[in-house]
Nucleic acid binder design. Sequence first.
RNA 1: GGGCCCGUAGCUCAGCAAGGAUAGAGCACCGGGCUUUUAACCCGGGGGUCGUGGGUUCAAUUCCCGCCGGGCCCGCCA
Length: 542
Amino acid sequence: MREQIIGHGTWYDKMAVEILERERKLDRSLDLIRTEMGITASGFPHVGSLGDAARSFAVTLALRNQGYNSKMIAFSDDKDGLRKVPAGIPPSLKKYLGFPVSSIPDPYKCHESYGRHMSSLLLEALDKCGIDYQFMTGSEAYRNGLFNKEIETILLHAKRVGEIIREEVGQEKFIEALPYFAVCSNCGRIYTTKVYEFLPKENKLLYSCEGMEIKGQWMEGCGHKDEADYTKGEGKLSWKAGEFAARWKVLDIRFEPYGKDIADSVRVNDRICQEILAYAPPIHAKYELFLDISGKRFSKSAGRIFSPQLWLRYGSPQSLLLLMLKRFVGARSLSVTDIPQYMNELNELEDIHFGRKTISDEKERAKLSGLYKYCWVLKPPAKPNIHVPYNLLTYLAKVAPKDSEIDFIKEKLEAYGYKIERDSKDLERRIEYALNWAQDYPEIKETTTRLNTKETTALKEFIQTLEIEERENQLQGAIFNIARKHEVQPSRFFQILYTILLGVPQGPRLGPYIIAMERRNVIKALKRAIKKKENPPFKIEP
RNA sequence: GGGCCCGUAGCUCAGCAAGGAUAGAGCACCGGGCUUUUAACCCGGGGGUCGUGGGUUCAAUUCCCGCCGGGCCCGCCA
């Protein structure tokens, strides 16, 4: 009854088998099995954008693992028009609304176009994760005439395409309209044009730049009338009405995952692909979108971008892949504060992979070990790394004295009994993540450090002690004595000191810490706190 | 109007897509250890009708159907 474990025991291995079975049934060549992922080039990539790549690539890896040649194509939709200037981009870009993002200059001036800038942000993250891909762009593909035949077929069967769309999603528009957007030769916009006639013998489309409503806003056209040659990339297919289908056929794509927001378009394109282009569309896998912590969909333009880069500031590439690969179904709420959890979970998977932690069910063990391997793009390290809980590292990072953070943390870890390798690059990277975390997320819960008279007096006396006492143990003892002398609970007094010095009500043993911080710095901080005692001295963020 | 997701410990969630043993974790709580207090760390403990009603099965948190509650996506473009 129990089947054999397939590949590494994960969903991706099973998907690979399904693909192979289907392709055999379709009698197609298995020499090269392509998967695809799409890159949005019209805005900043969000962590979720990486999910498409991670999942598609995991299937590619699974196929390779089963002995087949497989490649992933990363296709940038840079022929799409700019619909909205994202937050964080100079508003001067407004003049390019409606332009293909590949023909808008890069506002950061480091790439050949706005679209290339955006897509490169995602590619950079893919590279860090060890994902390999073949990069293609819509603008080049159209310019090189890659889709010529398919554009023609779709336009010749535009009526049928329109009917499919109506049947699938109830939209009537394409019964009349041709599914092609021409770039206006006068004003440069792509969404303002309406194609009203197709001249197949000349490979041309006649259009007029009339304007269009995008996201509730009317985008005015320039009124220009002209003809567009679709073999020269003077426009593009409508995404929904066959662009995917054309791509799948031309690039011979066998697998492509998609987010549920484009589910309708994928369904329509599957039919166009099969019925109009006579090509069996790729197998799909639908995944849910990430939600932000409030339960709303992450918005790419709302200015609260949770980018892959942000994740990689606090967590390893492997932890990012874990986020993407551990579960395929289900919407997940996501917040930066989840990163430590994924870092810890990766430690646990590593323990399972290296047999340090036993899992009784072999299938389960294989699956978790497999997940670990996929997080390492099937190139896992030869031996496990040191596992320090992330929260311990952030705690140490928070209290580490400036300029000697890494040494301080290593010393503390040794004192806590961790057998660390002093020159471990992996450990240093983990410490870097934690330091970034500690710097950006102070987790200040205590805002009321308002001091009463007794507490202020005690604090002043402690400052005097600090000026003369340089032995850590004596300082430690002095805290108690001074607190009791002024009828302040020692625990309360410690709390005050921690809040002032660290922003949190607890911390490391104070005596040694004060010495490490240098007494004069501590004195300054305490004096400032006394001055500011009327107001809560610490902000709450974030 | 069409489609999807979620509901598991006080809280946040994992486990479900290859059904299988006493259902797990973190936080919180209680007790202990270590530390010249706090914190951290370690050990132990309590705590769950797996939303609900059916079905399939030797076996359901897991698969199927209904219902209740919360939320999302699509219905213009992409």
